[in-house]
Amino acid sequence: MKYRRHFRKILTRKYPELYDSILRDTEYRYAQISRDTIFSKNSTNPLDKRLDLMAYFLATILTLQEKRLDFQGIQSVCMEIALEYVRPKNRLQKWLKKLPPKLIDTSLARLFLKRMQKNIGRKWHEDGFRAELVTDKKETYGLGYGIDILECGICKLFSKHKAQEYTPILCKVDKITSNLAGLELIRKGTIANGADKCDFRFKKK
């Protein structure tokens, strides 16, 4: 739950007079929404682990919507929070974020990816993720790593709470995290925007 401090940092700065009200309402909504993501804590699918954070994002979005913030305003807040959350806080973190692409051709990485495919290839829960790894270098711009999201737990969560129009905001965060890893994200479509799958492909910068 350490992610809360990043939300509070941005919201305090942007809305000092409304902060107490925003925090109270967000926490109340999160308590309700998180019932739908409680399964993620025990899921063997690593993609499901992000759903608790997404539940807090959703609670924040719905609270800001109630405060009459428009879509662009909500998107701006979410992107600031996401950037604050993922950005490296020191040199070690910066180095670690750029390490995975450098290890992708190692035997250790291949072993990890094989195990990862087993875990992400099946749904642990009906409301969770299902995905498929792509390791053919011809299909991954020579990197040897890509991923197709076939069922998106975030889309399911947001749709369940009638907030599906906000799901694409979270898709934008993927470009930030890819950039921090020294990669350019290339994606033809996302489930949030009506595609059959989210195709993650990357190029080394």
Rank of each mutant, 00 (worst) to 15 (best):
M1H: 11
Y3K: 01
K14Q: 12
Y15L: 10
P16K: 09
L18V: 02
D20K: 08
I22K: 07
R24P: 00
E27Y: 03
E27T: 05
Y28A: 14
Q32Y: 13
T37A: 13
I38W: 09
F39R: 12
N42K: 13
S43V: 06
P46I: 12
R50G: 09
R50P: 01
D52G: 04
L53I: 13
A55F: 11
Y56P: 07
F57Q: 08
A59E: 09
T60C: 15
L62V: 03
T63Q: 07
Q65T: 07
Q65P: 01
Q65H: 09
R68M: 06
V77P: 02
V77M: 07
C78W: 05
I81W: 05
L83N: 10
E84P: 07
Y85S: 02
K94F: 12
K97I: 06
K97T: 05
K98R: 15
P100D: 04
P101F: 09
K102Q: 10
K102L: 14
L103H: 03
I104R: 00
S107R: 12
S107G: 00
A109P: 08
A109Q: 04
L111K: 11
F112V: 06
L113W: 00
L113P: 05
L113Y: 07
M116L: 15
Q117T: 00
K118F: 04
R122T: 11
K123C: 05
E126I: 09
E126W: 04
R130L: 07
E132W: 04
E132G: 02
E132C: 02
L133C: 03
K137A: 02
K138Y: 01
Y141L: 02
G142Q: 03
G144I: 03
D148G: 01
I149D: 04
E151C: 04
C152I: 11
G153F: 08
C155G: 03
K156Y: 05
K156M: 11
K156T: 15
L157V: 10
K160W: 09
H161V: 06
K162P: 01
A163T: 06
Y166H: 08
T167I: 00
K172A: 11
D174H: 13
S178C: 08
A181G: 00
L183D: 02
E184C: 00
I186M: 09
K188F: 02
K188T: 14
G189D: 10
G189N: 11
N193Q: 15
D196V: 08
C198R: 10
K204I: 06
K204Q: 04
K205Y: 06
